[in-house]
Amino acid sequence: MRWVLIGLAGLTAAACGPVAAQAAAPGPAPAAPVVVADPSAAVYDPWERANRGLYSFNDGLDRAILRPAALGYKRALPRPVRTGVRNVLNNIAEPNVAMNDLLQGRVVLSSQSAARFVINSTVGIAGIFDVARPIGLPAHYADFGQTLGRWGVPPGPYLFVPVFGPSDLRDGAGRIVDGFASILSLHDLHVTTPYRVGISVVDGVDSRLALDSTIEQIKHTATDPYATERSAYLQNRRSMMINSKQAVDQLPSFDAPPAASAPRSGGHRSGSN
């Protein structure tokens, strides 16, 4: 919880200036494409030292508890049951998706999401079966961090949060709002606190299981797993917030490497050079 508060405070401080500026002048996209010569310029990790500490702490936690729990869950339940559980969890999150679609001005997507919720909650028996997908209402994803990004809020400093994984100030703040939204919708369903905790635990275990092959692959192949996960997270989130033309314009050149800057004197400094 403390992380989240730090995130909120920092977000307010770090983001308000640029956001206000962007909000004041929406207008058309600038004519000249912004070319970011060095993709790692998009990596802003001023708290890298602390983040790396949390990363290794999480690694120990993961080996001792999180991964064994995920693999135990996999052994205990057959795939169709796990799929049903995942569907129920996604269905609980669906109102939040619809709300965020709306906040992003995506009315069609929002109504699709709302329709999915109604159909899957009833015909799909409390969300166990995703009956909406085969009838042309595929699942999509939206969260409040994404909404903030589409409103022009920059990601702010990168954060690694134990158990939750890679994040940044904006997405960390978004996660709290998503959390409250989930509590509210479960409250409407008269779900008591112990059950809410249970739902969160199952959600975490199932999410960890879904990422297992990716995480193991990164741990096995990356020379710096921390930097690799950070890079992948930031690129993935960024891709949700800009259109394909902007994305293409901002790619690094393959032929002109960024200017050499002084390497670190030692230890872990920032990765943003």
């Binding site: 993709p39 921390y226 930097a227 992948a232």
Partner: peptide, 23 residues
Amino acid sequence: DGVWLAITQQQDFVSTIDNAGGN
């Protein structure tokens, strides 16, 4: 999923070299 493999690879390698003092 928005993630470029070569860019990710670059950030992995550059971070490793950075942390080795540029070696």
